[in-house]
């Protein structure tokens, strides 16, 4: 399956992908909340059945994991990208002095399957129940065969299923089987990473460099000021003293990762993460720029000979915004005229 086809499937129908990049650790015991309160940079306002999107930072306030803290009655499930199960459990263990908690790395017993796309809700409804349409974004529920987390980083409807390994192949089979009615495609992590970049979702595996904190990375929404957590002192200092900030850029042809960006012959930044956008038919990237020029809507930058301009995130007009499970369906998609996948302006 060509990358272009996989990306377009994520953008217009539904895809199934492996979730090997995700780790899950169950945190239980009397002090489960207390432990997570110590490590989470974001205030834990999360009720049973809900997910809180945050980060785990090191002492230099550098993001080391992209995290969902999920409240499951008395326990929590921590789902992370950027650390494997062992490293995730080790990170949590490092903070648990004096606390009554049990940490349970699910990696050996469970795996993730990811379903994304404007009709992902319909495929999931098919294999669970029609009530899925009532599951809000960033909440989850337990089905007989798996736990279903409504999240997704492609900017479309997205559901990550945490499946016991003994059911993994039958669940994948069921999805692909039922998915025939939806033109389901299998998508690679590459395709989903491309979609995440287009959608403006932070990618911990590609976008972090030493010295970067949530302030530079435009991730302050994942952090609550004034909390004690690993890296909080660095973070507090950085807020008033930021000199670089990320911005989305676009260019007509390929760009090199870590390529230098210049404005009027002067170096103003570098490229962190770049991919070809099939939807926009141009190259896009997350770039780190000096704060004085880190604004959307500017022209005149260069990377080598390639002209570069800054653009707004998200960079695509996700179809999922226009699909309403109350009245739309894949079967009747031809009767709807959807807007283009890119906005008229930028």
């Amino acid at each position: 399956m060509a990358l272009a086809d996989e990306v377009m499937a994520v953008r217009t129908s539904v895809t199934v992908a492996d979730g090997e990049h995700l780790a899950a650790v169950r945190v239980s015991g009397r002090d489960a909340h207390e432990l997570l309160d110590r490590v989470s940079p974001r205030q834990l306002f999360v009720r049973s059945g809900q997910m809180l999107h945050t980060l785990f930072l090191d002492d230099a306030a550098k993001p080391i994991a992209d995290v969902y803290v999920c409240c499951d009655e008395d326990d929590y499930l921590v789902i992370a990208e950027g650390l494997d199960g062992q490293a995730l459990a080790a990170y949590l263990r490092s903070q648990r002095d004096g606390l009554d908690v049990q940490l349970d790395d699910r990696a050996s017993t469970h795996a993730f399957v990811c379903v994304d796309g404007p009709y992902a809700w319909e495929l999931i409804a098919e294999v669970t129940s029609p009530d899925v349409i009532g599951v809000p974004y960033l909440s989850f529920f337990h089905d007989a065969r798996f736990t279903c987390f409504r999240a997704g980083k492609a900017g479309e409807y997205g559901y990550d299923l945490l499946v016991p390994r003994e059911h993994l192949s039958s669940v994948r089979e069921r999805l692909l089987d039922a998915g025939q009615a939806f033109d389901v495609q299998v998508a690679s992590r590459d395709a989903l990473d491309t979609c995440a970049l287009e959608a403006g979702f932070f990618n911990v595996r590609h976008e972090v460099r030493d010295g970067l904190t949530p302030v530079e990375l435009q991730l302050q929404w994942r952090v609550t000021a004034g909390r004690a957590h690993p890296g909080h002192e660095t973070l507090a200092r950085r807020r008033g003293a930021v000199v670089q900030r990320v911005a989305m850029i676009a260019a007509p042809s390929a760009l090199p990762t870590d390529g230098v960006l210049e404005l009027g012959g002067v170096r103003v930044g570098r490229i962190l993460h770049t991919r070809w956008s099939y939807v926009r038919d141009e190259q896009i990237a997350l770039a780190l720029l000096d704060v004085g020029v880190s604004y959307a809507g500017l022209r005149g930058f260069h990377c080598g000979e390639t002209p570069v301009r800054t653009i707004s995130a998200p960079t695509v007009n996700n179809r999922s915004l226009y699909v309403d499970p109350q009245r739309h369906s894949w079967a009747r998609r031809a009767s709807v005229s959807f807007p283009a996948l890119t906005r008229p302006i930028t």
């Binding site: 960033l138 302050q220 929404w221 807020r239 989305m248 604004y295 959307a296």
Partner: peptide, 16 residues
Amino acid sequence: REPDEIDADAPLFGAG
């Protein structure tokens, strides 16, 4: 949020 905590590319709806 304080104004300087509000990033220009942060999602308004859903996440963010």
